[in-house]
Amino acid sequence: MGSLLSVSELKKSYEVKKSIFSKNREVIRAVDSVSFDLQHGSTLGIVGESGSGKSTLARCILFLEKPDSGRVIFKDMDLMDIKKDVIRSLRKDMQIIFQDPYSSLNPRKKVFETLSEPLLFHHIVDRDYIRERLIEILMDVGLNEDFIDKYPHEMSGGQRQRIAIGRALTTNPSLIVADEPVSSLDVSIQAQIVNLFMDIKEKRGISMIFVSHDLNIVRFISDDIIVMYKGMVVEAGKKNEVFYNPLHPYTQMLIDSINGDFLKKEVDYKNELMEGCPYYSRCDFSKDRCKKEIPVLSGDKDHKVLCFKD
């Protein structure tokens, strides 16, 4: 099987004024030359700290945010070239689940309305059969018929997130992008939702992009992982390769910090280094060369890293 989604050299940057009155604008490269392939039925985990550009990347893939340059090839179509209304009809094939189920559901709509909207918009199901279809979906996400007439405020966080997942499933998408879907949930509920994702993945063979800062969850759910830092992919590869043989100092630090000792070194957030390796100021192994040149993402198919260190 070929790949469902292929992203190459994707770039997105924002201009930010340094202060309200200054004329100097600073360019923040939120996503910087990101490339990856997503196979049919597999799950890609995107890991990174806040501000690393992982959410921007997720939004760019779905064209909720227009990338500056690069290619997004979804089902052999280049999204950069085709028209807006074509993309809109493609939306039913790619869905997104947001982090916060409290703000991603309309508080004034009942579950019935929330779930039927995409079905009617994309003309998937006839109006007469909609209720039956919705009950099916609710069963799929572990809820039952009773929920169909509820408002969001009548449900707990976990149940709301199930509705959000159900809404994404209504259109039978082939790609689901989940942006931190469990981070706002209680610990005992997180595991339930992660299991639900696994069920969906197995039952429907949907490809998934799973964005999270929680390495444990990403390790559990993904087949491939990319690690982002300041908009760049610093390491990419098969799950076990990245976890048991991390090559980039940043990945090593992340993995150490979830099961090892506390870090002592201060994080330096200064953006001063415009050229050179993005991780230079925090790296323990930095050399002169890292200051001047940006390393290239290199390695074999199963494991790539952006670092000069051997």
Partner: peptide, 27 residues
């Protein structure tokens, strides 16, 4: 049992099981 459930749902990530052991129901 609640503490056990919490522990399992967090640390089972390391195992090779296909599913996490989740505590059923809601808070």
């Amino acid at each position: 049992p609640y503490s056990r459930g919490l522990m399992e749902s967090i640390f089972a990530f390391k195992g090779h099981e296909k599913r996490l052991k989740a505590i059923p129901g809601f808070v």
